[in-house]
Design a protein around this nucleic acid. Structure first.
Length: 495
DNA sequence: TTATGCGGGAGCA
DNA sequence: TGCTCCCGCATAA
């Protein structure tokens, strides 16, 4: 709750932000105001602010202090030392606009650094079945210019104002980029000996980290601590998992319950598909007026679930809709999308019930640089490891990320065959679970075909896949003849 | 190597 | 003149 006080710049002790109320949106201020209104309560951090909005964070909010954002924002000089201005760099997309079998598209995060960003452009699409190149889709969401974010610190608060509505998909979240960069140091293990050695080191490392991961959902590592971990284990792939867990906690990734599907407008509207309408489970405001764009893209795990309760109060003349209006708007939007989107997309909210995203990852998501990464994620019904992970980890929580790394060449060794056999056995069991899941999933996608492909896997690539849940590292197989990496052998490597 | 913040400078109304 | 964005540099991680 943001309250005006008689004495400007007097800030009450920070408390958790309650659901937005009417008084909250009545406060009118601009980042350029000589004096911004003091607040008594602060917003939760929202790293996917979109549309014209204003937020007030507590000065001790780490994300706010870092001026963090899910969007790729670069610094822009506005010749005002008291106000930091950032503009959006857009998103890196595949020039061929390829899609993963699960419907996800490639939408990487542009590097903030100009030099790094230049290197990104023109690179081959990480989808190995795609000959496209990465190219930047510039943000033109603010009157043809990039969307801008403004940060201003005043008193014990950090004021944030966004101008413009992003006209492009969300890039992968910052944590993903950082993790990938870290993991890029992990080299493909080309021999069984190397694999086993790598695996042993990996397991040891994960074991050492296990003690902290369970707290990831409740507490977050300080940036310094995370950096220490990163530095101390930069050569260890699983480090990213731990780091991602920390990031998840930092960014309040939620909105998708691991315990089950909740097809409420809240979940639906938190999706990337609804970039401009924000509903919270409690029906609070989180509203912005524009529904200007809708992308044919599955939500990125890391990108789509920052369920910050930060309030969107419309600027200028925009007014908060009443609750019935909100519901009506949701129904309209839902109806519209049901008629304009492919079936699996219109049923996207079902996907958002995923509590794990790793199991169905296309084998095509295999990087040309030995590291595959995609932001797309799989429908829950195709997710096999989720159930096992859930069983193995009662306190697991939704992971918004999934990455996998090729650690084997197709010519696997005997040990690999054993793993494959074990995976096959699990696969049969898992297929039954999938079928049951599909019965309960009124979303039409090509499950039977996928199952068939799964069952016909003969030779396979193997991947380590960290689903982010309980630091379980799965060995996954990729049939050469199939584009699908739909079955997670779920030979969990617990740590 | 990359993210971040600062500041110079060009373009435009 | 004021505002905008682009770009380069320095610094930190």
């Amino acid at each position: 709750m943001v309250l005006l006080t008689d004495s400007l710049m007097v800030v009450a002790p920070p408390v958790c932000s309650p659901p937005a109320s009417k008084s909250r949106i009545q406060i009118d201020w601009d980042i350029n105001d000589t004096v911004v209104p003091a607040v008594s309560e602060f917003d939760d951090f929202n790293d996917w602010a979109n549309g014209h909005c204003r937020l007030v964070y507590a000065a001790h909010n780490e994300d706010a202090r870092k001026h963090a954002s899910g969007w790729a924002m670069r610094n822009t000089n506005n010749h005002n030392v008291s106000i930091l201005k950032k503009s959006c760099l857009g998103v890196l997309l595949c020039s061929a606009k390829c899609r993963l079998p699960n419907g996800a598209s490639v939408h990487l995060r542009p590097a903030i650094c100009d030099k790094a960003r230049r290197k990104q452009q023109g690179k081959q699409c990480p989808n190995r079945n795609c000959n496209g190149r990465l190219e930047i889709q510039a943000c033109r969401g603010h009157c043809g210019y990039p969307v801008t974010h403004f940060w201003r610190r005043a008193g014990s608060a950090i004021y944030f104002q966004a101008k413009g509505t992003h006209d492009h998909p969300r890039p992968e979240a910052k944590g993903s980029t950082e993790a990938r960069r870290l993991l890029a140091g992990g080299r493909r293990v080309r021999s069984l000996h190397d694999m086993l050695k790598h695996d042993a080191a990996l397991s040891n490392k994960l074991s050492s980290l296990r003690g902290t991961k369970r707290q990831a959902g409740k507490s977050q590592l300080l940036p310094q601590e995370k950096r220490k971990q990163r530095a101390s284990s930069a050569d260890m792939l699983p480090t990213s998992s731990n780091e991602l867990l920390g990031y998840q906690a930092t960014t309040s990734v939620a909105g998708v319950s691991a315990s089950g599907f909740n097809a409420t407008p809240a979940n639906y509207m938190n999706s990337q598909w609804s970039p401009d309408s924000y509903y919270t489970p409690d029906g609070s405001i989180n509203y912005s007026a524009s529904t200007a764009y809708s992308y044919d893209m599955l939500p990125s795990p890391l990108s789509s679930n920052s369920s910050s309760t930060a309030s969107y109060y419309p600027t200028d003349s925009q007014q908060q809709p009443s609750q019935p209006q909100l519901q009506h708007s949701y129904e309209q939007l839902n109806a519209t999308r049901a008629t304009t989107m492919p079936a699996y997309q219109s049923g996207l909210h079902m996907y958002e019930s995923c509590d794990d995203t790793s199991s169905l990852i296309s084998s095509s998501a295999h990087s040309c640089e030995e590291l595959g990464y995609f932001n797309g994620y799989a429908p829950q019904a195709l997710d096999i490891s989720a159930s096992s992970s859930r069983n193995a980890s009662p306190d697991n929580f939704y992971t918004p990320n999934s990455e996998f790394f090729s650690v084997f060449e197709p010519s696997g060794a005997s040990t690999v065959e054993l793993l494959y056999d074990e995976a096959n056995a699990y696969q049969q069991q898992s297929l039954q679970q999938q079928q049951q899941a599909y019965v309960a999933t009124p979303v039409a996608y090509e499950q039977p075909q996928q199952q068939q492909q799964q069952q016909h896997q003969q030779s396979a690539d193997y991947y380590y896949s960290n689903n982010g849940i309980d630091n379980v590292w799965n060995i996954q197989m990729d049939a050469n003849s199939s584009n699908y990496q739909s079955v997670d052998s779920s030979i969990g490597v617990y740590c």
